[in-house]
Write a protein that binds this DNA or RNA. Structure first.
Lengths: 337, 337
DNA sequence: ATTAGCACTGAGGACCACGGAGTGCCAGGA
DNA sequence: TCCTGGCACTCCGTGGTCCTCAGTGCTAAT
């Protein structure tokens, strides 16, 4: 059905269209790619490809344009991830080294990825749910207030103010602090609820109300509300593209963090590159965009995702190469921290 | 030179142009505003206004459009800040209450402001330089590592990892922690350097290296590097406008935090609304935008700025009203925290 | 199975005519 | 002196027509 040459034609159509942003005709293909056949033959192949839904014509007397299905085949079988150039690798290193804390690592990463791909980059903060507790700190802020700071092994810090937890003595706080740390330091966040379950019982009854408030806030901030933070960069790169949907819709979708989180989260194959093309994206405003995403993490534990959003008409091999490379570097940097 | 009626004409031109986004002619003005004179008279006034540079014609047979100078006069003398409607005030309250920590307050504020003005909103985090130390926490992370967490009275938390500070004993850390807090808790950040100057001398010589590293990182993160954080929302609203400069340039400018910080920082009159119109903005990409900004803070101490970026053709009274109202509310919320 | 030749199609650009909004100016009137 | 009605003029935007041209599908020959 789809012999070798038809696939070659499809590949050529995708590549040319990505380069020129104009429907590509049979003659142009015959000229620029060494397919060894005449335009007429290519035309016949194109008819077959069109019947199978891989390419389409904007209008009768125009060249062909890949469909989402065509891009999908291209990504799956006709292309391979393009490794970065030496210059690009060097740029990554010089860009990422010297970051001083997690915020800065993430901020630099997202800008870097946007610059490399000339598209919109998305970086997710290391997930709380998959990391473990490094240390819990309790700080009295006044007579009735307490600040809780939780530090995770991925460098992330969550802080919350606890209000009206009864009156607070320095020593009671210190007791609770050391008890808490003994109970949960080193544990994955998922195991925290079980581990603190019987803690109030061990506390001096006088201070039990405080302990209870602290624990409930702790659980709430770590487990129930596992809000995942996301950072964007490179939205200016969208202005250069013209979308089927309006640019406004795309920008709106990008501002809805929950949408992005879901999108990144849907990557099927963990620790691999995922590409979602056009209509494959459930979100209305992103129907004319593609999303290339990857996991990053330390070792083989995945912490979060990074990704790139661009027009379906994008340089998939190059973008995939950049995303993969940046994901690896971030993993390394985080491991070294 | 500019009598009462000419000013009224200018006001009408600005208002109509803002509404319709089309050059406004003498007849339309005579119809829609009760100026009490004929189109011919209005035309004569327009000629005068044009000679003085307040309005201009895109081409000979078109209506008039305000110039930057025209908007400036409008803002300074012809309009007053429009207070918010009851519904809007209620929206603000329900939007901002229930925020659980500083990050969330800021995030909600910026979205709120973007929604109210239908433009791009900018909110700056409370400045570190103007707040004071609430508490310093030191947490050993391992044999050779230490995490420092500084909590300010504005709810902001800075954390840094200190690496290779010599070997660390629990008790030495505790000593240093309490010494540090005694020395600087409650101090404005600006006074911290002086206050810690002689601290190393008081430390047991064995642990002096650790103390020195901690202090240098402390100073670096609080004073020297007073990087100010900024959050944006509502960029999708830009897509609806058509700029003289390309949309891309505007988006690029908005991504450069340093530019925004400088822009907000340049407000002349502290604790008042500032409006910068078109060419008044030094940045290339923002020549066709206007920026309305205000200070917010607790009491009469200004902590940081919020603002809105939109086309020069914007509803100044409404935008100014929204910015001022939101600034006040954020101040209140922060004070209550 | 491939190719050359050919008639056909539809988009986009150039050209033109025209209607209309808006102007500037002038002369007459309060 | 200031305002107003009238009028000629300018120029943009629109819609129609024509033409070009890239690219197609089909057919007959290799």
């Amino acid at each position: 059905m789809l012999d070798e040459r038809k696939l070659a034609v499809l590949r050529a159509v995708v590549e040319d269209f990505v380069n020129t942003n104009e429907p590509v005709g049979s003659k142009a293909l015959a000229d620029r790619h060494r397919l060894g056949v005449s335009p007429a033959t290519i035309r016949n192949d194109m008819v077959a490809l069109e019947e199978d839904g891989y390419i389409t014509q904007p209008h009768t007397s125009a060249g062909r344009v890949p469909t989402d299905k065509g891009y999908r085949l291209f990504v799956d079988r006709l292309s391979s991830v393009k490794p970065l150039s030496v210059a690009e690798r060097r740029a990554i290193e010089s860009f990422l080294t010297g970051a001083v804390d997690l915020d800065e690592i993430i901020a630099r990463t997202v800008r870097l990825l946007a610059q490399l791909t000339r598209q919109v980059a998305i970086v997710q903060y290391p997930s709380l749910t998959r990391s473990s507790v490094q240390h819990v700190e309790l700080v009295p802020l006044g007579a009735m207030r307490l600040m809780m700071v939780v530090i995770t092994n991925t460098g992330r810090v969550e802080q919350r103010v606890i209000d009206g937890a009864g009156e607070i003595s320095e020593s009671a706080v210190a007791d609770l602090r050391s008890m808490l740390n003994r109970a949960i330091a080193g544990l994955p966040l998922g195991d925290v609820p079980d581990a603190v379950d019987d803690l109030p019982a061990q506390v001096d009854p006088e201070h039990r109300p405080m302990a209870v408030s602290v624990l409930s806030i702790l659980l709430e901030s770590l487990v129930e509300r596992h809000e995942e933070k996301i950072v964007l960069a490179g939205t200016a790169n969208l202005a250069a593209v013209d979308f089927a949907a309006s640019l406004r819709d795309v920008l709106e979708a990008l501002e809805e963090n929950m949408v992005l989180i879901r999108l990144l989260g849907e990557a099927k194959d963990p620790s691999m590159l995922t590409v979602r093309i056009g209509e494959e994206n459930f979100h209305e405003g992103l129907r004319s965009t593609s999303i290339v995403s990857a996991d990053y993490g330390v070792g083989n534990q995945s912490l979060a995702k990074i990704g790139v959003v661009g027009p379906t008409r994008m340089d998939y091999p190059g973008t995939m190469g950049a995303v993969r490379a940046v994901a690896r570097y971030v993993g390394q940097i985080l491991a070294g921290q």
